[in-house]
């Protein structure tokens, strides 16, 4: 039973898409990232994506790189993710952990799954793990009843869309555009096409991320996807703030505006 999918279906049945908000663990510090995630949920984020800081984040643009670099420089440890998940999950929002693969390999794939499940985490989003390389994770996520969110991209072939849809649980993460995370002026038309193609390839639930930063863009994406994933724009509010408290306020304001965009979208 996927907690994430259940939430996405509830929202779909109530006539709207979900807002998925990303923040990295450890920015401005571990406790501060937990507080920020809770503030985001209070402001209307439905599902939290908590990023594990990693030294070589090849799918991330400058905004997230900067926050993650700070998190590592100030000593954030991978194992702290479980306590943070537990605290954020207490809000009732499903919490997915976004992580590059090596920290999980190093921790032990099954041990990571076990500890994430024990903390009440919903599952993992894995930007540099394709299902073809994920046999250990497929087994561990089955054993511990976790969601496994794999990505598809505009370059994915029909065969790969089907393979990825079949391997995913919770939802399929559709990267709106070819490129790394970060704000873009427009969300390309290819995102809508990718969502349609991914559904046609067998995915029930598809959320769109990469390059979504404004309430208007969120509303547009909410018109055709099951969820709208926003990361860099939210992280930027924290990076640009003079202190943690005003960062949380700015984060809450943007999250609320994005939520309004998502809920106001015509489906």
């Amino acid at each position: 039973m996927s907690g994430t999918a259940t939430r996405l279906r509830e929202l779909r049945d109530s006539g709207r898409a979900a807002l998925v908000g990303y923040l990295p663990l450890g920015y401005p510090d571990v406790a501060g990232s937990v507080e920020a995630a809770k503030a985001m949920v209070d402001a209307g984020v439905d599902i939290v994506e908590l990023g594990v800081p990693y030294t070589d984040p090849v799918m991330d643009g400058p905004t997230i790189q900067r926050a993650v670099e700070h998190a590592l420089e100030t000593g954030t440890r991978v194992a702290q993710v479980f306590g943070a998940v537990e605290q954020i999950a207490a809000t009732g929002a499903p919490v997915l952990v976004m992580t590059y693969w090596n920290p999980v390999l190093r921790y032990g794939v099954d041990a990571f799954a076990r500890d994430l499940a024990a903390a009440g985490g919903a599952g993992l989003i894995t930007p540099d793990l394709i299902p073809d390389e994920g046999a250990d994770w497929l087994a561990a996520s089955d054993a511990h009843d976790l969601d496994r969110v794999f990505l598809v991209a505009p370059s994915s072939t029909t065969e790969r869309l089907a393979l990825t849809a079949a391997a995913s649980r919770g939802f399929v993460y559709a990267a709106s555009t070819m490129g790394v995370t970060g704000a873009r002026a427009t969300v390309g038309a290819q995102a809508a096409r990718l969502v349609a193609d991914t559904r046609a390839a067998g995915a029930e639930l598809v959320c769109v991320g990469v390059g979504v930063s404004t309430p208007d863009q969120a509303a547009e994406v909410a018109g055709y996807a099951d969820g709208v994933i926003v990361g860099s724009a939210l992280v930027r509010t924290l990076l640009d703030a003079p202190d943690a408290a005003s960062g949380r306020r700015a984060l809450g304001d943007l999250a609320a505006a994005l939520a309004e965009g998502v809920t106001g979208a015509r489906r």
């Binding site: 693969w101 930007p127 394709i130 390389e133 990505l151 370059s155 790969r160 990825t164």
Partner: peptide, 12 residues
């Protein structure tokens, strides 16, 4: 070995 890369690169 293997291919531990984003899906976006698999086609290339």
């Amino acid at each position: 070995g293997g291919r531990f890369v984003p899906e976006a690169l698999i086609a290339a």
